[in-house]
């Protein structure tokens, strides 16, 4: 039985395929490079000396939703990941693990709202031991969220038997406004706050194919805030 071989594709077919791949790559590259406009303002205000020793850990918490706060879970995780990243990354205790280990004293209803409540909290059975066991030096409380503050334009899409497409232009603006309060558990005091206010405008022009130019507002806010928090904790300006 003779084996059957397929004929190799012709030169024209190969050229057409290469051209398609190049067009697709160029389109993806353009989409990746082109993004919306983002402006950010990062401010910190220090009230006490900071610093971190070997074995010290930090925990990221969101202020209680009982107080109207709506910090997103994914933002907390993003800050945790960014603070822990790199060779000089901090040791971050995952907030779920921390909250469970100190149940019920860091639940949304019971968590201390001010540093003056810390001393009373530490006197509760087992609390100081659990905090010492995990080496927690700083608790960082996040307050804020990302909101869509403006938008406009018009974009419509249609599909028919011969194909489909979109036409128009839409834009929207997101505002990621977050404050991080740093509590030092060594002195049971507030070390200060770091704020990040990031505004981003996204655009979506469409001429048959929509081309989204997305401003990664929340992601930029997270990276900027985490970087500033790292400096705030590690680099002691008052030393």
């Amino acid at each position: 039985m003779n084996p059957k071989y397929e004929q190799p594709p012709s030169k024209e077919v190969l050229m057409k395929q290469a051209s398609r791949v190049m067009k697709l790559t160029a389109f993806l590259l353009l989409a990746a490079i082109a993004s919306g406009c983002v402006t950010s303002t990062i401010v910190d205000a220090r009230t006490a000396k900071t610093g971190i020793n070997e074995g010290d850990t930090v925990v990221i918490m969101a202020k209680s939703y009982h107080l109207g706060n709506e910090t997103e879970l994914k933002y907390i995780r993003c800050i945790e990941e960014n603070l822990a990243r790199g060779q000089e990354g901090l040791t971050v205790i995952p907030h779920d693990e921390f909250v469970d280990s100190l149940f019920p004293w860091f639940e949304p209803r019971t968590a201390p709202a001010e540093t003056k409540n810390l001393a009373k909290l530490m006197d509760r059975p087992g609390v100081a031991d659990k905090i010492a066991e995990q080496g927690i030096r700083y608790i960082i409380w996040l307050d804020g969220d990302t909101d869509r503050v403006a938008g406009g334009g018009s974009l419509s899409c249609a599909v028919g038997p011969g194909g489909g497409g979109c036409f128009g232009f839409a834009w929207w603006q997101n505002d990621a406004d977050y404050d991080a309060s740093v509590w030092d558990l060594e002195g049971l005091e507030s070390a200060g706050t770091v704020s990040a206010d990031v505004t981003g405008t996204s655009y979506m022009p469409a001429l048959v194919i929509p081309l989204p130019l997305i401003a990664r507002t929340q992601s930029r806010s997270c990276k900027s805030l985490a970087a500033q928090l790292h400096k705030f904790i590690v680099q002691d300006e008052t030393a």
């Binding site: 149940f103 019920p104 639940e107 949304p108 209803r109 019971t110």
Partner: peptide
């Protein structure tokens, strides 16, 4: 589940 934990926290306190 968070509501149940909230109830538990309140009862403990």
């Amino acid at each position: 589940i968070l509501a149940m934990r909230d109830a538990a926290a309140l009862m403990i306190m």
